[in-house]
Nucleic acid binder design. Structure first.
Lengths: 221, 221
DNA sequence: AATACTTTTTAGCTTTGTCTAAATTATTTT
DNA sequence: AAAATAATTTAGACAAAGCTAAAAAGTATT
């Protein structure tokens, strides 16, 4: 596997992320995601097409090729392993790890990454609950759903959270909700879409629609 | 402290390294060290001068400023901490760590580095035995030695003199040797233990055993 | 179907960091 | 102290990655 520039890697990663939600990615979407200008995106798309990392015809949007996806998974693997390292070993808080991992992920030495993985005990999810691809790029995809869509009285575990701001972290901490917490919805209120949830034997409490929209859960296996 | 590009950091680090052997660094030396061309070196020197990281006048060679040295020590700190991490935690062999650390050292997040230092237990030397600068850039200072014991071609600075008679001061003044003068021994003569020393770009000259025995030097930091 | 609007691309310029070739300055040799 | 040689700098180009402004293509509206 070849080596790509930091800039190329950031584009590949962003396209991979947007594809999940969208199938095909547009110039404007990507420019917005990367805080750059559409013209810059077009330039880079031409380059990545030549390198066979994506399918692209002018005005038609773009999609990663198989090779492009493999590269993306490699970057995501590095990012999440470093996040795990930062939180678990260096005691960074949840909301601090992402930014630092953004830099570390671009050091793409296979031996380093595989030995780091081993040192960490082959973790399967990062501190935000997102799955970590293994050395072969395989990723564990569990059917997740937004908490707002979980049926009432159906137990599930918090798998990850969308927003990773410290203000959200503060709220989650206060409500005693963390990755892996098992909970169920007891009642929904139509008026403001708030809901009452229950964790174990503790009394039920209310969370807002805004918070629920940022929490993903999965049914237990 | 500002942030510098990977390229700038590599130049700063190389200058710092070459300074210890030479006092002042030349264009060709640096080009050779960095496997680049002299013209490229000149371009970068102009830039680093503007940023006040080095003293540089055309055709006169260059030397880091205090600020430049601080930046260099920061890079060296990161490099050696990562080397320690790779050897100690990830079980790399001592000969593999340097190359990987060359990439990791450019991730210059102070909190990351300080927490890594703490996680590693504040090691004082890296796997090659080289001292690791602390969070304030302090590096285990080198000990003083009598000039007669300084190895050939090893630059050092005069730290103090034993005899302070006026006859000695007269001689020192004539030879243009003062406290802080950077010099190195070019050749020793077994017959009378006299030695040829060189100060900066001036021609080498001879001093006697008696004089050398009264001069103390220390390696630069 | 023609016009208006939006999105995307192109064209041309900027900054970093590199290069080669030519000019300049320093140093060494005669 | 001139001439020869070596080291250094300047000038001009190039590639990567970005930008702005203008052109082109695609979509929507009347």
């Amino acid at each position: 596997m070849l080596n790509y520039s930091t800039s190329e890697e950031n584009y590949i990663k962003a396209i991979y992320r947007l594809q999940r939600q969208d199938g095909t990615v547009t110039t404007n979407e990507l420019a917005h995601e990367l805080k750059t200008k559409p013209a810059s995106v077009t330039d880079m798309m031409k380059k990545l097409k030549v390198k066979k990392l994506l399918h692209y015809e002018p005005y038609q949007g773009f999609r990663l090729t198989g090779e492009g996806s493999k590269v993306a998974l490699g970057i995501i693997r590095r990012h999440r392993l470093w996040e795990y390292f930062l939180a678990e070993k260096l005691k960074f808080t949840w909301d601090e790890v992402h930014e630092v991992a953004e830099d570390l992920e671009h050091v793409s030495n296979k031996k380093l990454v595989d030995k780091l993985d081993e040192f960490l005990g082959f973790p399967r999810v990062d501190p935000h609950g997102d799955p970590i691809p293994d050395a072969n790029g395989r990723i564990q995809s569990s059917k997740k759903l937004v908490l707002t869509e979980l049926p009432e009285n159906m137990p599930a575990s918090v798998s990850n959270v969308k927003d990773q701001s410290s203000s959200m972290l503060e709220l989650l901490e206060h409500k005693k909700i963390a990755i892996g917490t098992r909970l169920e919805i007891k009642k929904r209120f139509e008026f403001d879409a708030s809901m009452e949830i229950k964790i174990g034997r503790h009394p039920a409490f209310t969370i807002s629609k805004q918070l629920a929209e940022n929490i993903f859960v999965k049914y237990d296996d």
